[in-house]
Structures are given as C-alpha cells and as structure tokens.
C-alpha cells in the first residue's frame, strides 16, 4: 500500500490521507476497488464496503472543505466524485462483474452476442406478456400475469448472480474461459434487468383510482 507523500502515513485510499487529510488527484485514475481500499473481488463484504465509503467520505467530502478556499473545494469535489463513482460500481453486482471481466481481458458485451436458443425463446415470451400488458388497462386480465412473471424473473436473476459468484470467486486468471462464461451470464442479466424495469414501470404508471 502506498504512503502519503506529505506525512508518510500508509494510505487506505489513494484519494486522501487518513492521517493528515491531504487530498490527492492520482493519475492515472485508480480503479474503483483501489479508491475504496479494497482488493478486487466479486465477493464484496457489504458492511466493510459501507465502512470504507463513510470513512473516506468524512475525509474528502466538499462539505468539510468549504472554508478552505476554491482550490481545496474543487479537489474535494473531484475526489468525492471518484469515490462515489467507485462505490456505485462496487456496490452493484452486475457493474462489478462487468468491470472484473473487462479488467481481466474477458470479452466485452458486444463480443459475446451468442445467447442460448432456449433463453432467447423465453425472452420473446416475456416480451409478449409485457406488450399485451402495456396495451391493456390496469387491472385487466392481460396484466394479471405480471406478478408471476416478476417473481420468476427475480428468481432467475438470483440464480444468474449465484452462477456469476461461482465463476468469479476466486477470481479467474487473465483470459480464462470462465470470463467468457461470466460475460454470457452478464448478457442474460441485462435481459432480465430490462424486463424487470419494464414491469416496474407498468406497475408505477398504472393510475390509481381516484
């Protein structure tokens, strides 16, 4: 772990020194895991992640640099933006897996377009249900199947995440075949997430009776 260039203390995050409070603007930009002082892993300890976020935030947040001039304020803005972005990525399993696959030289999402025929048939069925629901009034028969579809999609989402966990923990070697398999799971996850978003939109947009 690097040391603070000003006071020599060990740095938990490259964005700020926990001992003397000096803000840094590291180049090139550190990875999301580095920003939070965590080793790159799919198996993130949620409680530890939150502790790291709060600890670093208390050091870098612009609220605590308001009285120290324009330059310090701008540095705090930058560091906090990096930290928040890092946290958003690490906290989200899909974004986290996507980042790990890419950083280990795995295929990008458009390089692994092949999806299992059976899965694609299933996606077409979801879309038909969604389309029919969209074209009918809230409370009608065409919408009665949505809760069941939602439950099924959530279940599938959980099993895809479990599969990702199996493929990415421990982290595979650079270029390992597991990365391509993880990418395929991530693509399936996108279909699932997309359909779940549409179900939520249908549920929220149904105007309630006055």
């Amino acid at each position: 772990m690097a040391a603070c260039t000003k006071c020599g203390a060990e740095l938990e995050t490259p964005l700020v020194c926990g001992a003397c409070g000096t803000l840094f603007a590291p180049e090139p930009e550190p990875t999301p895991f580095e920003c939070l002082g965590l080793a790159a892993t799919f198996d993130v300890d949620a409680a530890l992640l939150r502790r790291r976020l709060l600890r670093a935030s208390r050091l870098v947040h612009p609220d605590f640099h308001g009285a120290s001039g324009e330059e310090a304020r701008a540095a705090a803005e930058r560091a906090t933006a990096s930290l928040n972005r890092a946290h958003a990525l690490v906290a989200d399993p899909a974004a986290r897996a996507d980042w790990l696959v890419r950083s280990l030289g795995g295929p990008a999402e458009n390089e692994q377009r092949q999806m299992a025929q059976a899965f694609l048939m299933e996606v077409m069925e979801w879309n038909e249900t969604l389309e029919a629901a969209r074209e009918s009034a809230p409370g009608s028969a065409a919408r009665s199947g949505l809760p069941a579809l939602e439950a099924s999609l959530r279940e599938q989402r959980e099993s895809v995440l479990a599969e990702l966990h199996r493929l990415l923990v421990p982290l595979p070697a650079r270029g390992a075949p597991a990365l391509a398999q993880a990418r395929a799971q991530l693509n399936a996850l996108r279909y699932l997430a997309n359909s779940l978003t549409q179900i939520e939109a249908l549920r929220l947009d149904s105007p309630s009776p006055r």
Binding site: S57, R58, H61, D63, F64, G66, A67
Partner: peptide, 12 residues
C-alpha cells in the same frame, strides 16, 4: 457544517 463547525454530520 460548511463553516467548519462540525464533522459529525455527513450529508450524502
């Protein structure tokens, strides 16, 4: 908080 009065409140 912005005047440096406290670090106890963290607003996100």
């Amino acid at each position: 908080v912005l005047m440096g009065g406290t670090r106890e409140v963290l607003l996100m």
